[in-house]
């Protein structure tokens, strides 16, 4: 559909839209494809006129009467088209389907569930006070001394079910509100992450966004206390029972580390989204990066590269002025950690593995060393691959 060629004396067809009024702006969009825009109040009012079946010309006349100005209707229709809000000619609007698992989402955050979560948490804390052997400590990671591969395998694969549970809780807290979600793998600096896409949250009132954002960390706490409770009767045993108890504690400590990782808010973790929601921001990280790039381009005289600050919301601009320094400091600290800890550790681990390889070249030992190296460096290498792919995609998009 070409907005310029639209007959302005015929009503338009629009997809089912959601409207959320917040202060001076209205978030309008389509829940089925998660396409949302922040409209000024007059723009949202004009859109509502079109939605009721008024022709664009009639709506423009109404706008003129209401606001005393002539609206650029063709340009407004181009905006609606860019957000895919207009139904193209010859296309039917599919019925909006209810999301799956909404019932489970409601059950997991029902009053009964909250009571059970509270009891589990209290029982876990009491167990830690009564049984010092199950208190989380970094030594719990070393649950076996039989094989380095078994140790690395246990710590990497042992997190998989709890990561999926973390992401499922985000998704189900979203489903409870009737929102679509999807799971993918992405990267945050040199960390590989699992991501739950919940763009529909921008269309629900802010106070309802907190639970879906915090649901993952909530379940992390429950996993730590649950695994700790499970380890209590096992940890002082011999044989397999003792091994199982130690493995449960290793998984609990790994979960605790992932919980702590959420405090790296500048990597756009769950706590970043929580903070930006509280602060009333829209896309703080992008604005902070844009602000930093503008400053750098200004310094090197590339004024043609500077992004117009008017494209950012006033609140984002206001917060980004101080957030940008937190973000830069955060990245600097993580870079320092990479140079002083991760890379030296990687070199040392590789040295040990290569030494072991040359001391015994039997197929079993080669396999042992290979698996060990993959487990240790797989994540860093995958993060590197994702970074290169992302850079290429951005370069290609800019070139086009």
């Amino acid at each position: 559909m070409d907005a310029a060629a639209v007959d302005l004396d015929r009503p338009l067809r629009l997809y089912p839209l959601t409207f959320l009024e917040e202060g001076d702006e209205v978030t309008v969009g389509r829940a089925d494809i998660d396409s949302y825009g922040l409209f000024p109040a007059d723009g949202a009012a004009l859109l509502r006129r079109l939605e009721t079946g008024e022709t664009p010309n009639d709506a423009a006349r109404w706008y003129n009467t209401q606001y005393g100005e002539t609206v650029d209707m063709v340009e407004f229709l181009e905006v609606l088209e860019a957000f895919e809000l207009l139904v193209p000619d010859g296309e039917e609007v599919a019925e909006v389907r209810a999301v799956r698992w909404q019932g489970l989402g409601k059950a997991l955050f029902s009053p009964v569930a909250w009571v059970l979560y509270g009891l589990l948490f209290i029982a876990g804390i009491v167990a830690m006070f009564r049984e010092p052997a199950v208190v989380p400590t970094y030594q719990n990671i070393f649950f076996t001394s039989s094989s380095l591969v078994a140790l690395a395998l246990g710590n990497v694969l042992g997190q998989a079910p709890w990561i999926l549970l973390h992401e499922s809780y985000h998704a189900l807290a979203g489903r409870r509100l009737g929102l679509n979600s999807s799971l993918s793998i992405g990267r945050r600096f040199y960390y590989v992450v699992f991501l739950t896409k919940l763009d529909g949250l921008v269309a629900v009132p802010r106070r309802k966004r907190y639970l879906p954002m915090l649901a993952g960390m909530l379940v992390d706490v429950l996993v730590v206390t649950g695994l700790t409770l499970g380890a209590v009767p096992l940890v002082s045993s011999d044989g397999f029972a003792g091994f199982l108890g130690r493995f449960l504690l290793a998984m609990a400590f790994g979960t605790l580390l992932r919980f702590a990782w959420q405090f790296y808010f500048f990597l756009r973790t769950d706590l970043y989204f929580l903070a930006t929601t509280v602060l009333g921001c829209n896309d703080l990280q992008s604005v902070a990066k844009g602000m930093l790039q503008n400053r750098l381009y200004g310094l090197i005289g590339r004024r043609d590269k500077i992004v117009d600050a008017e494209t950012w919301t006033p609140r984002d601009r206001e917060v980004a002025r101080w957030y940008v320094w937190l973000m830069v400091t955060g990245y600097a600290v993580l870079t320092g950690l990479l140079i002083t800890a991760v890379i030296p550790a990687a070199i040392r681990i590789t040295g040990l593995a290569v030494g072991k390889l040359f001391s015994d070249t039997s197929p079993l030992n080669v396999l042992d060393v290979t698996v060990f190296l993959v487990l240790n460096f797989g994540e860093l290498i995958l993060a590197g691959i994702l970074a290169v792919r992302g850079y290429r995609r951005r370069t290609l998009a800019t070139a086009n």
Partner: peptide, 20 residues
């Protein structure tokens, strides 16, 4: 002519570190 400026809404990606 009054132009109506519409900004793109931010995205929400809730994360968990993959593992170390």
């Amino acid at each position: 002519m009054k132009k109506i400026v519409v900004r793109k809404a931010g995205t929400v990606r809730l994360t968990s570190a993959a593992t170390c």
